[in-house]
């Protein structure tokens, strides 16, 4: 089998390398290793330096604060999404009603709805109820954007569980919230963790919601990045590259730490298969 495996490993490495090449290029620029086109053949400038990371704070004085805002907003929004999605996913998986499957798939369609479709009136309504430019307004809107996907994924996780434990707890006189918290939640904990990570990534990278719902008070990193271009304030490349790498780093670390748990982010339970 070794003979068969080695080419596949090479193929995987080649594909991964090709996809990561632009990021590697950016990573090199972030530490000051830049191509020099003036020589033939082109060469590199060096040596590596961390100066450009410090320069981010000069080019965009509030960058580090924006990084903190992004982090807190994404954590709050992701937790809110998952907290709201768990009971609904449970109720959806344990209710038998006509059109139940359509409702579940409807959540996926809602998840694929671009934010642009409703963010214009949302901004107007938020202004009228004074939620514009507030942390609560941004995080609630972000949580709503990602909630349908969380419901869909967690519904799949609950639907796969056998119901015996729930029935047993019911006979013991446990209420529905107790059953959800003590019986179901521990069993779907890996899926919940995986969903939290993916929601954090989506919230962290979201542009339109914070862009349209704030005018500077709750500025996140994507909004800051968009500012540089919409207002024609060009960053120089090493500083931009450093900012990109710094804003990617937390997500890379998160995925690195949770890479095993992330296998539980499953869009569709392998249905209709005879298990055992």
């Amino acid at each position: 089998m070794v003979a068969v495996r080695a080419p596949r490993l090479i193929a995987v490495a080649a594909v991964t390398g090709a996809f990561l090449l632009p990021l590697a290029w950016t990573g090199l620029a972030a530490v000051g290793v830049l191509p020099d086109d003036s020589t033939r053949p082109p060469s590199w400038t060096g040596p590596p330096t961390l100066d450009h990371i410090a320069e981010i704070g000069v080019a965009e004085p509030t960058f580090w604060q924006e990084l903190a805002t992004s982090t807190v907003a994404a954590i709050v929004a992701a937790c809110l999404t998952v907290a709201v999605a768990i009971p609904s996913a449970f109720a959806l998986a344990r209710s038998r009603f006509r059109g139940g499957r359509t409702v579940t798939q409807g959540f996926l369609v809602l998840a694929s709805l671009p934010v642009m479709a409703y963010v214009i009136p949302l901004a107007d309504l938020s202004r009228r109820v004074h939620l514009i430019d507030t942390f609560a307004g941004v995080t609630l809107a972000e949580a709503a954007v990602t909630a349908p996907l969380a419901v869909f994924v967690l519904h799949g996780a609950v639907a796969q569980l056998p119901t015996e434990w729930e029935e047993a707890a019911l006979i013991d006189g446990a209420g529905v919230l107790r059953i959800l918290g003590r019986v179901v939640l521990p069993l779907i904990a890996p899926s919940v963790a995986a969903t939290l990570v993916v929601m954090f990534v989506l919230d962290w990278n979201m542009l339109l919601v914070p862009l349209v719902l704030t005018s500077g008070e709750v500025k996140t990193v994507p909004v800051a990045l968009s500012d540089f271009f919409t207002f024609e304030r060009e960053l120089d490349w090493p500083t931009a590259a450093a900012a990109l790498m710094v804003s990617l780093a937390p997500l890379a670390v998160l995925v690195g730490v949770f890479h095993r748990v992330l296998e539980r982010f499953v869009l569709q339970a392998p249905a209709g298969r005879d298990i055992g």
């Binding site: 990534v201 990193v221 931009a240």
Partner: peptide, 16 residues
């Protein structure tokens, strides 16, 4: 990793 780069940062990166 490419998906973790925000769509906005993707635009900035490919611009350069």
């Amino acid at each position: 990793l490419p998906w973790l780069v925000s769509p906005i940062a993707t635009g900035v990166m490919w611009h350069y």
